[in-house]
Computed example of a mutant assay.
Amino acid sequence: MRQLFRLKISFAHSIPTYSHQWFSWGEESKGTRNFIRMIIIIMEALKNNRVLCIDELEISLHPHLLHYIVEQFHDSSINTANSQLLFTTHNTSLQHKNLFRRDQIWITEKKEETMESVLYSLSELKIRNDENFEIGYLTGRYGGTTFDVETSTCSLNQLNRKPGYDFILVD
């Protein structure tokens, strides 16, 4: 395949003396590089009524940046095309009622007997209106955890014996 063009990207970081330190693409953090790669796709999705699907959205991104990305899809002045974001993540800080409703948070749980994955929404569970979704998930109230939360210990041997679980957030 013929390469049409190649960009040389540099990043300027401010330092206390009001000058700038320049970094090449390879010197920049993995999170910044991942965000730059994603931002064009995110902007296109927001503009053109797309459903954007991203596996493990949080890879090397700061939690504040994750919240920012999700908020762009929630903001009707930015998301004028009513685009949707569907993603998986291991970052439980996104399980917040100010960010998502119960029907927008989905959990997968693998049955140990059959290795079949079951997908269910928090709206299918009996959850108090004032409950903190993140704490409920981390304490095992909703299922989908990879270790016995009662003992609050998790050895590599336990993880190797039990199937893994994720949760999915849907906007």
Rank of each mutant, 00 (worst) to 15 (best):
E150I: 14
Y18I: 08
Q3R: 12
L122G: 00
G164H: 08
R50N: 03
L119T: 14
N160Y: 13
Y18Q: 12
I69C: 01
L86C: 01
F133H: 05
T146K: 07
M43L: 09
R161G: 06
I127T: 04
T108F: 12
L125E: 12
R141P: 04
V51L: 11
L7N: 08
R101Q: 07
Y18D: 10
I78C: 02
A12F: 14
L159P: 02
M38V: 00
F87K: 03
S60I: 15
T145G: 03
F87H: 01
A81V: 01
T139K: 10
A81C: 00
L85C: 00
F167D: 00
S60A: 15
C53V: 15
G31Y: 12
R2E: 14
K110T: 13
K8E: 15
S10N: 09
F73W: 05
F167Q: 01
N160K: 12
G143I: 14
E28A: 11
L122S: 04
T151Y: 14
D166H: 14
E134L: 09
M38P: 00
N157I: 15
S152E: 12
C154Q: 11
E28C: 07
R161N: 08
G164P: 02
D166T: 11
F147I: 06
G143A: 07
N129H: 09
Q104E: 15
E116R: 15
F147Q: 05
E27S: 03
R2S: 09
I135R: 12
F73T: 00
R141M: 11
E113C: 08
T139S: 08
K97V: 02
K47A: 03
K162L: 07
K162T: 07
S14F: 15
E131V: 05
R6L: 09
L94S: 01
P163W: 10
N132K: 08
A12Q: 08
M1V: 08
N129K: 08
R102E: 01
R2T: 11
R141A: 09
F147N: 06
K126H: 13
L7C: 10
N82A: 03
E112H: 11
N82M: 05
D75E: 03
F73V: 03
H20I: 07
P16F: 15
L52G: 00
I69H: 01
E109S: 03
K111M: 10
N91F: 13
E28Y: 09
R161C: 05
T145C: 09
M115V: 08
T153D: 07
K8L: 11
N48T: 05
R102T: 00
T89Q: 04
V149D: 03
I40G: 03
C154S: 13
R161V: 07
F23H: 15
C154I: 11
F23L: 12
K30T: 12
L85Q: 01
L61T: 03
N98F: 01
K110Q: 06
E131I: 07
E113F: 14
L94W: 06
I69F: 02
G143C: 09
N160S: 06
S77P: 04
I107W: 12
D171V: 08
C53F: 15
E124D: 11
H67F: 06
E28G: 01
P163F: 14
Y165D: 07
R161I: 09
P63H: 13
T108Y: 13
S14Q: 05
K162E: 05
L119C: 14
V51W: 10
N49A: 05
N82Q: 07
K110R: 11
F133E: 01
E113Q: 14
K8Q: 13
K97F: 04
Y137N: 03
L99Q: 00
T145R: 04
